[in-house]
Computed example of a mutant assay.
Amino acid sequence: MSEPVYGVFLIPDPATSAAVTSITLSVERQFGFVSAGRFPPHATLAGSVPIRAAVPDIVAALDPVLRDRPGFAVHHSGIVRHGAAVTYDVDRLPDGTRNLALAELAADVNAALAPLAHAIDALLVSPFRPGLFRAHISLASHEMNTQPELADQVEAFVRAVPAPAVPASFPASLVGLYEFRSAGWTGHWWETLTWRHLRTWRLADPRR
């Protein structure tokens, strides 16, 4: 297996997780697209960050950012194309403006990890760019780039799958740290992807 990379994910509520699981499994059975379903249901805060430091050092870097940080509401804006991928859009507030609490959380998490990170050559993995960040929960992802001839068909299928209903909003209360490994990062790494949950932080109740 290749060296590990790490992700920091906002963990959605159980209803959203159930809907994501239903859709990604349906996409896999219908089209053989496995990438979105290889991950736990999540909205990425920091994704596929190569780090050689020990896990306690990663936790120590993230702890000041996440410990006692107030939670906030995350709003569903429906199914959209995010780049090539099909996703739930969770980037905006009900009035259509950016969810700045979510964008700032992602920026702070990536800033905390930056001193520990190093560069690797990885297919379809880009460094964090705050100006390009758009919070989303993937429903069909990497194969939408590698098999673009099926992209429109997959999107139509995702929109039609009778998945469990998602709530209009859910609380951003749980953030998880995950370790990912694959046979290699330069090819279709999602086909051999495995993951391990390392730590969860519970954000503070904003009403307190």
Rank of each mutant, 00 (worst) to 15 (best):
R92E: 02
D205T: 02
H75I: 00
I11E: 14
V27C: 12
I137H: 02
N99K: 01
E28P: 09
F133K: 01
L150V: 09
V65N: 08
R129D: 15
S182C: 06
D68A: 14
E179N: 06
A84F: 04
V5W: 09
P162E: 15
T24S: 12
T97Y: 03
P94F: 02
R38M: 12
P127E: 14
R92M: 00
F170Q: 06
S138G: 14
N145L: 12
V158L: 05
V59L: 07
A160H: 07
S48M: 15
G7K: 06
F180R: 04
W201I: 02
T21Q: 12
E3C: 04
E149M: 04
L193S: 09
V80Q: 11
D91M: 01
V161M: 09
M1S: 14
L139P: 10
A156P: 12
W185D: 06
S26M: 09
P56F: 11
H197K: 05
G37M: 07
T87N: 13
L62S: 09
P70T: 00
Q153T: 10
A135V: 01
V90T: 01
V154R: 08
G37I: 05
S77P: 02
P94K: 03
A73H: 00
T87S: 14
A168K: 08
E191K: 08
L177F: 12
W195V: 06
Q153S: 15
R202F: 03
L124C: 03
G184T: 02
E3V: 05
L100N: 01
V55W: 11
L25A: 12
A36M: 05
H197G: 14
D91W: 00
R52E: 07
A60E: 12
F31N: 11
A46T: 05
G131F: 06
Y178L: 09
D13A: 10
L123P: 00
Q147D: 15
I51R: 08
V20D: 13
T194S: 14
A165K: 03
T21Y: 04
L102W: 00
G131V: 07
V8R: 04
H42L: 07
E191C: 04
L177D: 13
T97Q: 09
D57F: 04
P130N: 10
P167E: 12
E143K: 03
P70A: 01
H82R: 13
I137M: 07
P94N: 06
G7E: 10
S138T: 12
L203W: 00
A163C: 08
W201M: 03
A122N: 06
R208E: 01
G83E: 11
P115N: 09
G32V: 10
A73T: 00
H142I: 05
V166D: 12
I51S: 13
R159H: 09
P70S: 00
L10R: 02
A85G: 14
F33L: 08
Q153W: 06
H136T: 05
G96T: 03
M144L: 08
V55L: 11
R129V: 13
I11M: 13
L139C: 10
I23L: 10
G96Y: 03
A106W: 01
